[in-house]
Structures are given as structure tokens and as C-alpha cells.
Design a protein around this nucleic acid. Structure first.
Lengths: 338, 338
DNA sequence: TTGAAAGCGATACCAG
DNA sequence: CTGGTATCGCTTTCAA
């Protein structure tokens, strides 16, 4: 059923019907009620593509899925969806075929060129992130989840990664730990650099030299955590504490400790960043895991919200949100024993 | 730049330009080459919404993301994307706000009604899956990843879950194990039932009674595996072997074993189903994990391929693919010792 | 092999 | 408050 037919059916013009359904104020309340009721009864729904062509709006926002496909992505997406589901706005997911920077940029270029989305979300930026300049140049509205050092003005939301890791490290230092290993995220990403900075500054403040052998970078998986922790714990002297970048890497550290007959919370301490997953909670681990906590789902929701504001005309330059991170102490961090 | 302007620019009619770019055979080869070159030079790209309105095709397929957001989803998505990226077809992800059956059905209904996608993928079906009847009734093309027992004819692709678990269980039985625990997927899903059947039949064939305390169901996470394995291993007599539904649950079993000072591959045997994740490989675990293996990414690619065939006019009723599953023996399964 | 013109199905301006 | 009609930018039939 198309608009014209439907309008004839109920004895109104297409114009009025369109306005009634579109929520325009100038329509008589009774007329609108009737139109809405009849539309439901007769099953009339506007053709989405005609609407898009006529309005120039697409009703979709784009998200690029990295090939590493880490746990966090789904959770972040769910957060976005939570805000967008009321708005009748679609989420277009473009997965990357390859993981290199060139094809990443290419994906964004095509997304912007093809005008299949009204706006995009940039996730996990680098200090000099070409995606930001590109989108700005192409006049595609966007928001960045994370920070970059570009001079291009843009909206962003980030958590205080440096502060989080700094506090986590200081906590371990307060407990007497001196050899503290750090399992960070993928190299080159801003949040990774911020976390490195937090770690470095905490050590510096106590006059402790940074040992590069105690620092590693990689994706957030159990496997990465396990391997690094395993090799770190085989060093002499071995680290007595770990700062892990995610719950997954923390699991790997736990596993490595057990494989070497070391007890977490006794022989070694572990603290990790917790993005808050419904199925993997710090409280349930044994021993329960001390964390720096910030919900990535909540971030997704807010990012979507802010992006809608940008689309609504708000100046992106005004949008900068830096979220603090909670420090939650549990059983996995204890005073150094040996 | 719009078609009309671009056509004027290069001294041709919109018709010819459209045909040249659309790959229609009747266009002179030289003309086409020139059009393509100029389009690239001047940066002309057809307005996607106009194309969609004119053709009636949307150029997108829909995928519903469950709220549990398990690891496999991202990998399956990547597989889909691999096939779709050449086709200029978008992936529309609709995350579910709630996990119950009603809202799941609601999500599919809205997806079908709104005509924002040309077809949808149904993932993780149940034996009586209302989504299938719904989509059929609404004439929305679809393919099912997994199987159901509905009488509604439809395209599907599945792996041989029953056979896989049956062989896995038989392998453990061959090694002398008699108390074999089973960590399966979410209750009610067809693949879970198939796996249960494989397990049950393997036991029956050897005349071993099924002990319900040795069977559990749940989402595929480390935590679920850990908890169940932990409680199962505290039973007397305890199980000497585990069939795990996923790599994640297997990790949980490993963890539980270690926490009780039991050695996998000695005190207990473990075999799991491996969906093949790039970042979590059975070979890298210690001990390396025996698995039944089938790439969920490859399944995604094929599902997308078959869905394109359905859209191309192929009869969905003809499309039934049942993939065999490899059995790969590694160090985690050993003859029963105690 | 190319072009003219009629849709595709809505929205939104301009009248009334 | 309601309606007529141009418009969005492309595809595709029909004619040349």
C-alpha cells in the first residue's frame, strides 16, 4: 500500500496523511488520531527509501567493526542500540576486511562517500588519526569514542584512562609492590598511550625506574594475558603485581599464575580495567578481582546520544566528555609478601 | 554531483551514464570506459537512496544481535561481511533490547514490516521457531543458520552438532571414561538439543546411564564453564572427562581443574567444540585442547552467499546444507587413569 | 548504441 | 487546518 492509495482510502490528501503520521503540529488532533488508527488497521507503512530520498536523511549511523573482533565491540554496540532503538535509526555495521590503517581509512571513506549513513562513530582512535581529518573534510558528522591529538575540531567522549591506570598503579605501590607488570592494549592507540602514561607517571612519582620487559601490548584476550604473564613470571626477579588492560587479559594472568603454582592475592597481585560485561564479573572471579571500572555499554549509549545532538545541530566542538573511572578494591590486590 | 550534472559534463545522457556505470551490456565499450574514468575523476557517485527507490531494492540485509552478546557473533558477522563487501550490500544490525522470545519476535516483525532490509538471517533457532513462520508469512526472504523443526519450507545451513558431540563423547568412552560431564549451550535452542542427543546416544550405545547432574546448559562463557566444572568436580565420584560446548567454557573447565589441583590431560580429559577464533586457539592452550572443529566465520560467509542466491531467485526450499565437523585430537584427552 | 521521458513513493512549499 | 504539485536522483521502457 502506498501513500496515495492509503490517502484515497480514508478520504484525505497525501499531504495531510504524511503530516499526520510525521507528527507535524498543524494537523487537527482528531484527523491525526483517525489517520494513525487507519494506518495500523490497513497496514500502511511509508516506503523507507522514498522517505530517505525526499528528506535527504538516511536514518542510519555507521559503525566500523575491527577485524580483531574483541569482546567489547558487542557490548559497546548494545549501548548504542539502547539509545537508538527509540529513534528509528538503524545501525550500519561495516566490518573491516583487513586490519591495516590503509584499509581502515578506505572503509571510512567509502562509508562517507556513499552517503548510506547520516553520521559515524569513530572508535579506538590514534593520536594522529586520519579518519578524523577525513570525515571532517568530507563533512560527514561524527563523534569519537576516545581521544586524539588532531587539531581538527570534533566531538568526543572518553574515559580517564591515564587517571585510572595511575590510581591502579599507585594502589599497588602503596601495597609495597615494586616490580609491577603492565599488560596494555594495542600499540599506537590513544587509550593505550594514556594508560602507559598513567603507569609511567605513577612509577616516576615514586622514583621507580620503568623496566620495559615488564610492559606488553596486544589485543584484549585471555591468550595474550596468559602468554605475557607466563613469561614475565619466569623472569628473575619476577613481578609481584600486574596491571591488566581488560578482564580477559586478567583471566590470562590468573591462568598463568595457577600454571606456575602461584596464588593470586598472595604471591602476586592483579588489578584490571573492567568494561563491565554482564557475563564476566570481577566479583565472581576467584579471588575476586580489584578493578578500575567504567561501563563501555553506558559509553555507547551516551555516544549515540551525543551523536544525535550533533545531527540535531549542536556544535561538535562543544562536545567533550571525560568520564572518571571508579577504583574498586577486592581480593586480588594485597600487600607484597616476598 | 548528481547524475544529470555529471552527464552534461561529459556530454552524454543520464540514461547512457546510468547504463555504463550499471554494467549494462548494450553500452559501447569505449563510452563505458570513458564514463567510468570521468566518474572517478569528477567524484560522481550515484545517490544510494535514489537508486534504492528506483530499483525497489534496499541493498541491506538484517542481522539481529542477541543481548547475551557472545563471542561468536562478531566472528559470524565477519564471515557475512566477507561475502557481502564485494556486493555493496549493507549489514543492518538490530540489537535486542531484551532477551525474551516475545521481544525477539517483535524485533523481527519490525524489521520485516519496515522494509529496511532485503532479507534477514535467523541465527540460533529453536525447534519451533516462530520467527521462521513470521518471516515466511510476511514474505521476507531469509535463511536460517541452524535448524528447526517447523513445517514452513526455508533455506538453512547448519553444522552436524549431534554427530560432532557423539564422536567427541565416543572418543572419551574409547579412552575408558565413564563419568563424562557435558557443558552445553543455552537451553531450548536446536543446536543445544542436537548436542544433547549426540551425548545421550553415545552413552546409550555403550549402555551407560545418563546422570543429569553431569549435564549443564548456559551461555558460552568462561564463567559458566568454571562454575559448573567446579561443582561437578566436587561431586563424588567426580567426572573424569568433560565435553565443553565452546572454547570459552573449556577455558573455564581448565581453570576449575587447576583450582582443584587437577591436571587436564592427566586427572581429567576435556574436549570442546571449536568455532575457530583467531585469538583463541586450541593448539595454544596448555595442554593443547582436543576439539570438534567448524569455522563459524566460514559458515557466515556461506550463509551470506546462499542468502544472495535466494535474493537472486533460487528456491529456498532447495537450500539445505549440513556441514560435517572435524574431530581433532590433542593433549587434553587421555585414557582414564583413576 | 543512445536518448527522452515516465515512473519509484514519499516530503514540503505555496495556496487557500 | 487541508490540499495541489514540484521535487528528491536515479532506473528503465520505449523510440529512434
Amino acid at each position: 500500500m502506498k501513500l496515495k492509495e492509503f490517502a484515497e482510502h480514508i478520504g484525505l490528501s497525501p499531504t495531510t496523511v504524511s503530516r499526520a503520521l510525521g507528527g507535524y503540529p498543524e494537523v487537527n488532533a482528531e484527523t491525526r488520531a483517525r489517520v494513525i488508527e487507519e494506518a495500523a488497521r490497513l497496514g500502511y507503512r511509508p516506503n523507507i527509501n522514498a522517505v530517505r530520498l525526499a528528506t535527504g536523511r538516511v536514518g542510519a549511523i555507521g559503525v566500523v567493526m575491527s577485524k580483531t573482533g574483541e569482546y567489547q565491540f558487542t557490548e559497546f554496540m548494545s549501548g548504542i542500540a539502547e539509545r537508538l532503538s527509540d529513534e528509528d535509526i538503524d545501525i550500519l555495521v561495516t566490518p573491516m576486511a583487513e586490519q591495516d590503517l590503509q584499509s581502515e581509512l578506505q572503509v571510512f571513506r567509502r562509508l562517507a562517500e556513499s552517503r548510506r549513513v547520516d553520521a559515524v562513530i569513530v572508535h579506538a582512535p590514534r593520536p594522529k588519526d586520519e579518519r578524523i581529518a577525513l570525515l571532517h573534510k568530507m563533512q560527514m558528522p561524527f563523534i569519537v569514542h576516545g581521544r586524539s591529538e588532531t587539531t581538527v575540531p570534533h566531538a568526543w567522549l572518553d574515559i580517564d584512562n591515564e587517571g585510572a591506570v595511575r590510581r591502579a598503579t599507585e594502589h599497588l605501590l602503596d601495597l609495597g609492590h615494586r616490580r609491577i607488570a603492565m599488560i596494555n592494549g594495542r600499540e599506537g592507540l590513544t587509550f593505550t598511550l594514556h594508560r602507559d602514561a598513567g603507569y609511567r607517571k605513577a612509577l616516576e612519582a615514586r622514583g621507580i625506574a620503568l623496566d620495559p620487559r615488564l610492559v606488553s601490548h596486544g589485543i584484549f584476550t585471555d591468550e595474550v594475558g596468559f602468554r605475557f604473564a607466563r613469561s614475565a613470571l619466569e623472569q628473575t626477579p619476577r613481578p609481584t603485581a600486574f596491571v591488566a588492560g581488560s578482564m580477559m587479559t586478567a583471566l590470562g594472568v590468573y591462568r598463568a599464575a595457577r600454571s606456575l603454582n602461584l596464588k593470586v592475592g598472595e604471591d602476586i597481585s592483579v588489578i584490571a580495567h573492567d568494561d563491565v560485561f554482564p557475563y564476566l564479573t570481577a566479583d565472581n572471579m576467584s579471588p575476586s578481582l580489584s578493578t578500575t571500572r567504567s561501563s563501555i555499554r553506558a559509553a555507547g549509549t551516551r555516544v549515540a546520544d551525543l551523536l544525535l545532538q550533533v545531527l540535531g545541530g549542536r556544535d561538535p566542538t562543544d562536545i567533550h566528555e571525560l568520564w572518571p573511572v571508579e577504583l574498586i578494591l577486592r581480593e586480588s590486590t594485597r600487600p607484597r609478601t616476598a
